[in-house]
């Protein structure tokens, strides 16, 4: 059987990739996808813990995370469309109308 540490390592790698992408990416949609990757890394961790601890709470939590991610996508994409209509660009660097 694959030990717990392997799953957790996968989860950490996915999470770090997501976080790195969040910081480095320049397109708003890509940044948003990186956040989704982070949430899915968390799901892997929850599933692994749930399997190895033998309790169902983790699997339940995963369902809720998926639902929230879907709601977040709906709200997020709506906001991104509104931004695109206003400035015809999805580059993060162009979101600079408020600077000190």
């Amino acid at each position: 059987m694959v030990p717990l540490s392997h799953y957790l390592a996968l989860s950490v790698i996915l999470f770090v990739l997501g976080a790195a992408g969040f910081i480095l990416r320049r397109n708003v949609i890509s940044v948003f996808m990186c956040i989704e990757l982070m949430l899915n890394a968390v799901n892997v961790a929850f599933m692994a813990f749930s399997r190895f601890l033998g309790t169902l709470d983790g699997q339940l939590f995963v369902f809720f995370v998926i639902v929230v991610a879907a709601a977040e996508a709906a709200v997020g994409l709506a906001i991104i469309i509104a931004v695109y209509r206003n400035r015809e660009s999805l580059n993060i660097e162009d979101l600079d109308s408020m600077k000190m």
């Binding site: 999470f15 956040i35 968390v42 931004v83």
Partner: peptide, 15 residues
């Protein structure tokens, strides 16, 4: 712009 910044950073913090 405020909404998109708030959303991205808020979603990141939720992660």
């Amino acid at each position: 712009e405020a909404a998109v910044k708030f959303f991205l950073l808020g979603a990141f913090s939720s992660g």
